[in-house]
Design a protein around this nucleic acid. Structure first.
Lengths: 152, 152
DNA sequence: TATTGTTATACTCTATAACTATA
DNA sequence: TATAGTTATAGAGTATAACAATA
C-alpha cells in the first residue's frame, strides 16, 4: 500500500551504485567541493590553494628548503619553483641560500608575507566552517583525525 | 633538561604549520594517495577511475541518461561523451535513445560490461583495503559516513 | 525558445627530462 | 658521482563556447 511516486525527486537511485559508497569516489567528490569553496574564498587575495599551502609552511617557523616543501606537499621540485617564484614576485617571501649547503635555498617570509598568510588563513578557516556546516564539532574533529591518518 | 636531538628525523616540524591541520589540505592529500592507489589497481584492466565510476553507475540498474551521469559525477556533458565513447568502443556499454525523449540517450551495460565492472569493483575494494590499513573497521565506517555528508 | 548530446578549442595542472651549481 | 634548484616541453585533465537534433 505504499504510494507510488515514481516521478518525484526523492533520493537519487544512482546512490545505490557500488562506486557511490567507495572511498576513492567519496574523497574525490569531497575534495572537489572543499577545493572549490576555499579557492573561491582565497580569490579575493589573488591566492590559489597551493600558494597558500606553500606560504603557510614558510610562515610556520620551520625554515624549510624548497626540497622540503616539495616532499611535504608531495609536489615535484619544478612545481615548487613556480609557486615560490610567484610568492617572491609579490614580495611575500625571500629565497636565502642555506649556509650549510649552498645548493639549497631556504625560503623565509617577509613581514607582508606574514600578513598575507594571516588573512588567507582566516579566509580558509571560514570557508571550512561553511563546507562542514552539516557536521557537528565532534564529527569535524573525527574527520580531521581520520584524514590525517589516511593522508600521512 | 629535555635532550636536544636537532638532527634526528623525528616528527616533521612542518606538521605544525596552520595548513597542515586544515581540511582542504588534508582531503587533497588523502585524495592523492587514494587516487594513485586505485588508479594503479585498475591499470591492469586498462580502466581509469573515471571510467570505472561511469561504468558502475551504468551497471547500477538505474538506466541513467548521459545528463544524469554528468550531474551525479559533477562533470561537464562533454566529458561524459568522451567517457561513454571509450566504454562503448570496448564493448562494455551501449547507447540507446530514450523513447520518452529522443534527445536523451540512456546508457546500458553489455554482458561483458557487467563482467568488467565486477572485476574492477573487486580491484578497487582491495585497493581500499590497502589504503585504509591503518584504520580500524569502525574508523572506516566513520570515514565513509563523514565523507558522504561532505560530498553530497 | 530551451535542452541533450556533440565537437572544437583553449587553459590549467602535472610529469619528465635536461641543464647549472654546488657537494 | 650525486643532489638542489631551474628551465623547457609534452601530456593529461578541465572548462568554455558553438552547433545539430529534438522538445
Amino acid at each position: 500500500m505504499t504510494p507510488q511516486t515514481p516521478e518525484l525527486p526523492g533520493p537519487d537511485p544512482l546512490l545505490d551504485a557500488e562506486v557511490a559508497s567507495q572511498i576513492p569516489f567519496l574523497v574525490a567528490r569531497a575534495r572537489r567541493r572543499v577545493h572549490s569553496h576555499s579557492t573561491a574564498a582565497l580569490a579575493g587575495l589573488d591566492l590559489k590553494l597551493r600558494h597558500f599551502a606553500v606560504l603557510s609552511l614558510i610562515c610556520s617557523g620551520a625554515q624549510p628548503t624548497q626540497r622540503e616543501l616539495g616532499e611535504f606537499l608531495d609536489l615535484d621540485p619544478s612545481q615548487i619553483v613556480a609557486l615560490v617564484d610567484s610568492l617572491e614576485e609579490r614580495g611575500a617571501v625571500r629565497r636565502e641560500t642555506d649556509p650549510r649547503d649552498r645548493r639549497s635555498k631556504i625560503v623565509v617570509p617577509t613581514e607582508s608575507g606574514h600578513d598575507l598568510h594571516e588573512q588567507a588563513a582566516a579566509l580558509t578557516r571560514a570557508s571550512e566552517e561553511t563546507v562542514l556546516q552539516t557536521l557537528s564539532p565532534r564529527e569535524r574533529r573525527q574527520l580531521r583525525a581520520l584524514l590525517q591518518k589516511v593522508a600521512f
